[in-house]
Simulated assay, not measured.
Amino acid sequence: MRWTNDAHRHLGVLPAYPFYGGPPVAPAVGSRATIGELLSDLDREGTERALVIPNYGVPDPAIAFSFNELCVEAANKDDRISAALWVSPRAEDADRTEEALKLAGEEGVRALKLSFLLGGRASDPACKPQLDRILATAREHDLVVHVHTSPGAASDIDEVGKLVDTYADDVKLHLVHFGGGMSGHIK
């Protein structure tokens, strides 16, 4: 069997949401709700290692934050799994991000997941305190910051590139997708 590694596996099931004014749809139909389901998938696929990231995408950040402990639990259950924690640059998510950052030193945590899809942007002065806090935690715990990029708007590579200019000298950044995402499929 040929083994593979997965640097971007989501965990947690999102509720259906009426994107773009249409009927409610499930944004990630292959999502797994339990660690057992995740492990079964890894076995079936022959996935040797996986970075497990809280699922996100509906416009309620509390849902993504709610999956952080599940990802840490998955990392503690099987050594094939490393966990990423959902964090947010938005000032209104500061308390939830602070709670998430308390888990940064937990066994198996290897990354922090950051996205501007739910708001904010790398150049927004209101996001600077949160970005500084998130990136300082990554530096302190030697974690990778996993940043979602997509075409246009706040997650555009030109905008996200400002994080590279500001932080990448001493924090590892992993820029993901470079134009991908579910939005086009949903619309």
Results as ranks from 00 to 15, higher is better:
124 D>R: 01
59 P>F: 07
77 K>G: 15
88 S>Y: 11
13 V>I: 14
121 R>S: 11
179 G>H: 03
134 I>W: 15
139 R>S: 05
102 K>L: 15
172 K>L: 11
63 I>C: 07
163 L>I: 07
27 P>I: 02
66 S>L: 04
172 K>M: 09
29 V>K: 06
64 A>W: 04
38 L>E: 05
159 E>I: 09
75 A>E: 05
145 V>F: 00
38 L>K: 02
3 W>R: 08
60 D>H: 11
57 G>T: 09
81 I>T: 10
121 R>W: 15
16 A>S: 14
117 L>A: 13
60 D>E: 12
6 D>G: 09
88 S>G: 09
176 V>Q: 00
161 G>C: 05
114 L>F: 12
155 S>F: 02
23 P>E: 15
22 G>P: 07
71 C>H: 02
118 L>C: 05
95 D>H: 04
162 K>N: 03
41 D>T: 09
73 E>L: 01
88 S>I: 11
8 H>K: 10
4 T>I: 13
37 E>H: 04
38 L>A: 07
40 S>H: 08
168 A>K: 01
101 L>D: 14
59 P>E: 13
99 E>G: 03
18 P>G: 00
12 G>W: 03
159 E>D: 06
154 A>M: 07
181 G>K: 10
125 P>F: 08
134 I>K: 06
127 C>M: 05
51 L>R: 01
175 L>Y: 06
38 L>M: 10
8 H>M: 12
29 V>N: 03
48 E>I: 00
149 T>P: 03
115 S>I: 01
120 G>E: 07
76 N>I: 00
14 L>T: 10
76 N>W: 01
66 S>P: 05
51 L>D: 01
13 V>T: 13
40 S>A: 15
47 T>S: 12
58 V>G: 10
148 H>G: 03
119 G>R: 04
61 P>Y: 02
176 V>N: 06
165 D>P: 00
14 L>H: 10
50 A>L: 02
4 T>N: 13
154 A>S: 11
92 E>F: 00
151 P>Y: 12
139 R>H: 13
26 A>G: 08
90 R>Q: 14
123 S>M: 03
15 P>Y: 02
3 W>C: 08
128 K>L: 11
36 G>Q: 14
92 E>A: 14
122 A>W: 15
52 V>L: 05
160 V>N: 02
84 A>P: 04
88 S>P: 11
159 E>H: 01
165 D>H: 07
152 G>S: 05
16 A>T: 15
76 N>E: 12
36 G>H: 06
144 V>A: 08
173 L>V: 06
147 V>N: 01
56 Y>L: 14
59 P>V: 11
26 A>Y: 00
106 E>R: 15
16 A>W: 01
170 D>K: 06
77 K>E: 13
89 P>F: 03
26 A>H: 12
121 R>L: 02
26 A>Q: 14
32 R>M: 12
